[in-house]
């Protein structure tokens, strides 16, 4: 649910710079939100809510300041609102956990791009069946259990396969990072 019910017809178009910054920070914003919720699926909804607010406040953003920091503050508020709204029906991470994780994410964020490149290479190294399974899992915006249904495999076996593949991707990423000059 968008947290504002502002009539979109009244929105004034944002500047090109704003659109560009907005687009470029979407992924990182998503990761930040993702780290704070026990249900990964909720991250999409929160991102959407945050985007509605970010967009509606485009006039408040001052060119030249740190867009991501500004957007992340809005996102943090949206995470909070989401948690309040779902205080009963969702598990929640503790405040301490969220703080710790967000700080660490920030700390490690300079590595994200390298890690993503490594991931791209590692995906090519997967056995083709494994790659297909991973693609099926993520391409459809799906979840393990739906993948299991569509493959006609028991859910647990699909969970196991996905876990094995994700762990091997992580190991591969770590290996790749070690072998790049920056980390030697």
């Amino acid at each position: 649910m968008p947290s504002t019910e502002q009539d979109p017809l009244s929105l004034s178009p944002p500047s090109d710079e704003f659109v560009q910054l907005f687009t470029r920070t979407q992924r990182r914003l998503y990761l930040t939100i993702l780290s704070q919720v026990p249900r990964p699926d909720d991250a999409e909804e929160i991102l959407q809510n945050a985007n509605v607010v970010i967009w509606s406040k485009c006039r408040q953003f001052q060119s030249g300041t740190n867009f991501f920091a500004w957007a992340a503050r809005i996102a943090a508020l949206e995470v909070l609102k989401f948690r309040q709204r779902h205080a009963r029906d969702r598990l929640q991470f503790s405040d301490e956990f969220v703080r710790t994780v967000v700080d660490r994410l920030e700390e490690e964020s300079p590595q994200f791009d390298l890690r993503k490149k490594a991931l791209t290479r590692c995906l090519t190294k997967l056995r083709s069946d494994d790659r297909k399974l991973i693609q099926l899992r993520y391409a459809s915006g799906s979840r393990g259990k739906f993948v299991a249904e569509s493959l006609g495999r028991p859910a647990n076996s699909v969970y196991q396969s996905l876990g094995r593949i994700r762990r091997s991707l992580l190991e591969c990423i770590e290996r790749q990072l070690k072998s790049t000059p920056e980390t030697v």
């Binding site: 993702l34 991250a43 994700r166």
Partner: peptide, 11 residues
Amino acid sequence: YVAYVQLHGSL
């Protein structure tokens, strides 16, 4: 944890 967030989120 952060590595998983990054992996899962990127995928």
